[in-house]
Design a protein around this nucleic acid. Sequence first.
RNA 1: GGCGCUAUCGUCUAAGGGUUAGGACGGAGCCCUCUCAAGGCUCAAAUACGGGUUCGAAUCCCGUUAGCGCUACCA
Length: 473
Amino acid sequence: MPRVRFAPSPTGYLHIGSARTFIFNWLYARRHKGTMILRIDDTDIERNTEESLNSIYEGLGWLELGWDEFYRQSERLELHRKMALAIFEKGLAYRDFTPAQADLEEKEHSEGPWLFNPGMRDMPREESDRRAAAGEPFVLRFRVPRESPATVRFVDAVYGEQTKSTADIEDFALLRSNGMPTYHMASCADDIDLRISHIIRGQDHLSNTFKHLLIFEAAGVEPPQFAHLPLLIAPDGAKLSKRKHGPVVSVTTYRDAGFLPHAYVNFLCLLGWSPKDNREQMSRQELIDAFSFEGINRSNAVVNFKEDDPIDPKALWLNSQHLRTMPVDELAPYVRRTLEEAGLPIPYTEQEFLQTIDVIRTRFSTLRDFVTRGRAYFSDEFPIEPTALEKLNQPGARELLRELGERLEASNEFTEQSVEFELRKLAEERGVKAGLIINAARAVLTGQPVGPSAFAVFVAIGRNRAIQRLRAA
RNA sequence: GGCGCUAUCGUCUAAGGGUUAGGACGGAGCCCUCUCAAGGCUCAAAUACGGGUUCGAAUCCCGUUAGCGCUACCA
């Protein structure tokens, strides 16, 4: 039974890249009847915010993604320290009393890589103990093997065999001078303690993995399997960032744009992964059944947004596909919530509501469309768009609509067929093209120049309201 | 600078020694039509560059270039 985890640090809102990482972990867990763990990596007390934690819950909640176990690293600090100390006692870590460096500039321009601070790595234990006892602050560093340079290796489920010489790995920190564990220490300690079997995370951690392997080895445990994911990047090739790319990176943007949660999950899955059989629109179960590490790509994927439009056209298309093809009764709750949030009434019985949704969704691509382009189906107060007005202002159109209203009122029937019959009969009698009345009717009924078949619109709007709007033309 | 990863249409991707390099989004056009979508049909659009290996390379190897990641007492 695999045990996987998604381990975000609560330092900003839920990033779409993080959401995708969660999804891939979740898919793997569901596929193999494993356990999905949400672990909040909040060891950086300076940067953590409660707000950010809430946005993670909010984002995952919106995407309808759940987890089986939950942990917060800040509540497990004792475990992290204990493991760090155990490594220290084995002689595989040492105290570094060098004060924290404020000037990073110098280091960046140096020729070779920094590996360790001279004098600290080889300090006799007695001196180290004495200075620590005297209260001098220190960081605990991992003692990377240097005497006989070894090669650290592992097989990544996505990137294949990876190797790195210990000569290229610096003596990284395990414990900060304030006693807090670093990311590397906390992460590995928890992965060990929580018996994580597969670490599925962003490719930005690929080179960190060598350090983690050293920690696992020092702790005397078998490392888990690793699967690194290609990154999500901007059209200019840069890493997606809040500062540079704004709303594109936040999942709330897609929620607010009227995306269906599953459609967005589907879209995210297609960024860096493929079922390899040309399928694109897939249900949640289909995604679970098709997911495998073999399908994951190795190159970064571009989120195709523009400066004036944060939505990737393919995401929008996928959303419209789901919106138009999913069972209406599954779609209805989303539409209901969207209407409620916009303060629009639902003047329909449940049955009528489903029928109306089914008619109008054929031209919609987001939930937002129900309250904008679809406003007239729910409220009697709606604007008539300029292009719709042109059709309504065709010579004789308004008179014909009023006449049609009277005839429909006089008729017992009110179906697509009966409306079409009356309308065409009127057109013929008055010697005008049916299209003139049809387009004018759509305009007066919906305020829109375009939309579903006009006869379906009559029925969706309902007899009384339709007649009322025609007579007021 | 050092180390690592990556490179197929504008974008997401398929093909992993032999295909006219396939699909999808987006774009263009045609059909359908009460409008607009949808749908159907068609078109334009790619193997970063240079060397090898091979009868044959998008695919394997080397180099170059470019991008990204790591190189913190961030994660």
